[in-house]
Simulated assay, not measured.
Amino acid sequence: MIVTVFSTKSYDRTFLEPAAGTAHSLKFVESRLTQETAILARGSKAVCVFVNDQVDAAVLKVFKELGIEIVALRSAGFNNVDLVAAKKLGIAVARVPAYSPEAVSEHAVALIMALDRNIHRAYARVREGNFALEGLLGFNLHGRTVGIVGTGRVGTSLAKIMLGFGCKVIAYDVMANEGCAAMGVTYTTLENLLGQADIVSLHCPLTDETRHLIDAAAIGRMKHGAMLINTSRGGMIDTAAVIQGLKSGAIGHLGLDVYEEEDDLFFEDLSSAVIQDDVFERLLMFSNVLVTGHQGFFTKEALSAIAATTMANLSTFEASGQATYQLAA
């Protein structure tokens, strides 16, 4: 099967090519998928896309005209895909539902630890010969309450880690996870979680129901000065409301690996450019904010698993017409 891979980086080649072997012929395209670049998939039967690729109705219409039969996501999230349009056009959509929950949960812990102990600020100070400790005071994680919103594989992995730190872990999910409860996680309402947690970490898919889950009202219910961590999808947070929360002190620390307007920023080297997103630039001005560029998934183990599952989806579809992890509208 000939597969056009959009949003290609060097590491995509490194992991996808061995996973494809001789089963699939991969055509790598550096461009992000849009209505304008969709034509680059000409001659392929399948396309492989990433989190910021645009797979809306207009793009899918182009794919239908080109004879594309399947869109293979090399990610777990699929909020960038119009599933209704795909079903109407008869184009299958497959994803990678679980690759390495530890990769993302461990990155969330890295953000928590760095913010708590001001590692990012201390690193910059020491490089300038400043060894003063004023302004770097942190707090013990042991005995703190961690609220996890969404207890799928990643949320469960984070719960296990934080319990190991000696934290009290509470959680909110539309469906309680028996495994989490057995570990000692206490389920509660979202309102109670926000009011009790010293650290709130988000691990939900982005849907109409979860978009801007953390808005001004939610921030108003949070424990004053709490830490907020988001390694799921940027749209979970109302960035303007969070900025106001930072200014008022309602949010004491903010750790982000995702951003709701990241499409034109993340995964690119913009070090020589002037960033035009004023809201994002405002976020970076806070010393108690730490932003990473959507790298929670970026481990050898996770990339290997993503590549293997993506190629397996394509092989299964080619053999039977339905991928192992096929999405339906």
Rank of each mutant, 00 (worst) to 15 (best):
M113N: 06
L254D: 01
E128I: 05
T8R: 05
Q295M: 15
I119Q: 04
R282A: 15
S100W: 02
S320G: 07
G235V: 02
D116R: 14
G129Y: 07
A329I: 14
K168S: 11
F280P: 06
A98E: 15
V47G: 00
G225N: 12
Y187G: 03
A58Y: 12
C204M: 15
I148R: 04
T4P: 00
F286W: 07
A159W: 07
L265D: 04
E178G: 07
D278H: 14
G21S: 04
F298P: 10
M1Y: 11
E17T: 12
D264P: 08
H212M: 01
L40Q: 09
G164F: 03
G195R: 01
Q244R: 14
I112T: 07
G21H: 14
E301F: 06
P97Y: 04
G135A: 00
L83T: 06
P18L: 08
S75G: 09
T292K: 08
Y123E: 11
D116F: 13
I161A: 09
V62K: 13
Y123R: 14
N230T: 03
E260R: 12
E281K: 15
N52M: 08
G166L: 08
N140P: 11
L206M: 14
H107I: 04
V59H: 10
L314R: 00
D53T: 01
A23Y: 09
G179F: 13
A241Q: 06
L270I: 05
E17W: 10
R74V: 00
F131P: 03
L40F: 08
L314G: 05
Q322C: 14
I68L: 00
V146E: 08
L33Q: 01
K61D: 13
R221N: 10
Q276I: 08
M183Q: 11
A182Y: 11
A114Y: 03
L246K: 03
L60D: 01
S201R: 10
V154N: 07
E262N: 11
E191D: 15
A124E: 10
V289H: 02
E69Y: 02
K27W: 03
S25Y: 11
G135Q: 05
M311V: 13
D173E: 07
G249W: 13
